[in-house]
Design a protein around this nucleic acid. Structure first.
Ligand SMILES: [Zn+2]
Ligand SMILES: [Zn+2]
Ligand SMILES: [Zn+2]
Ligand SMILES: [Zn+2]
Lengths: 169, 169
DNA sequence: CAGCGATGTGATACAATATAACAAGTCCGA
DNA sequence: TCGGACTTGTTATATTGTATCACATCGCTG
């Protein structure tokens, strides 16, 4: 699995954590250390992670520090919390989770759609918000009275890096 | 405004099957009925299918005809054959399989996107084509030089029927 | 300190993916 | 038509991944 290298991840992580803190402060709920560590793992990767990806990553870190291991349910509890407060997304078709990377103001605007570009080769993900796309989806869905449960779409393909590798291969 | 052109899958399927027959003839291997039916299911979908997706689809068809059910291993054997001869691809990152669809004379008209509205309750699927949606996706993908392998989107939600049932609770 | 939300712990449920082992059927050339 | 290789059927099971339950304990906060 290749990580994105063309920008500073620490910036992404800091921003995600800062947004989350703001959201939780406003709502009067607690962004505990454990929730924060789960969020940090998600924010540190542009690849949607499974609950067990997160578990393994955190336990690896904890092992190095001589700390006790976490159980799966701890991860699920943190994920549930983060989803409930709109801090992360669950990608249904992949049983995976990803930090919302667009800031709190962009999150719950009516008529907006979240778009994930997912690389089939390396799993990398890019996230965007589009109001016109959201409008189109609403229109199309409305024609058959379909009710999207979340304005999240996934588009599969090849990312820039993997296109290059493809050419060489 | 929202144009939704029909897309005749039979064309896609015929083309894939014809290619496969040519390949097998040249190699002197047998594209049996069962292998062909697995390939047909893959070719009929723009979405990568899991082995069990294929299994369920074929068994659904067979049930309607009063035929016996297939076991998972039959699907895996056909998939193995098709992969070995380069007729389909396995998408590693997702345990899914897709008919090989090489060539610039793609089955999809340029600029069009296929949209699947998938009901989370009953599994019903509705398919649409939208040119303006395709344009938007191209624009978004172009921003990060992402190459959609097929302009296909899946939107999950509740279909009309299941919304009614939901209401009755 | 009391109460409640958060976490630990162990077990378990549930689902998806894949293969093993062997029997039976089918094709095709010798 | 015979034999062997290829193909399929059948049953069972392995393997991994995903998710939740039940209950005990911790620890923050009022
Ligand atoms: Zn980043
Ligand atoms: Zn990639
Ligand atoms: Zn088609
Ligand atoms: Zn439905």
């Amino acid at each position: 699995m290749i990580e994105m290298s063309d920008h500073d991840h620490s910036f992404c992580i800091d921003r995600v954590l800062a947004d989350a803190k703001a959201v939780c402060a406003e709502k009067g709920v607690r962004l505990t250390d454990q929730r924060q560590s789960v969020l940090r793992v998600l924010a540190a990767s542009h690849v949607p992670s499974s609950a067990y990806d997160i578990l393994n990553q955190l336990n690896k870190e904890r092992k190095e520090k001589g700390e006790t291991m976490l159980a799966p349910v701890s991860i699920y509890r943190a994920l549930e919390f983060l989803i409930q407060h709109g801090i992360i997304h669950r990608i249904e078709s992949r049983n995976a989770y990803v930090a919302c990377n667009e800031g709190p103001d962009a999150r719950h605007r009516h008529g907006e759609a979240t778009i994930f570009l997912l690389c089939d080769k390396c799993g990398r993900a890019a996230e965007f918000q589009s109001e016109s796309l959201g409008g189109l989806i609403e229109t199309i869905a409305g024609k058959v009275k379909f009710s999207p449960n979340a304005p999240v779409m996934e588009i599969r393909g090849l990312c820039e890096e993997c296109q290059k590798l493809e050419g060489n291969g």
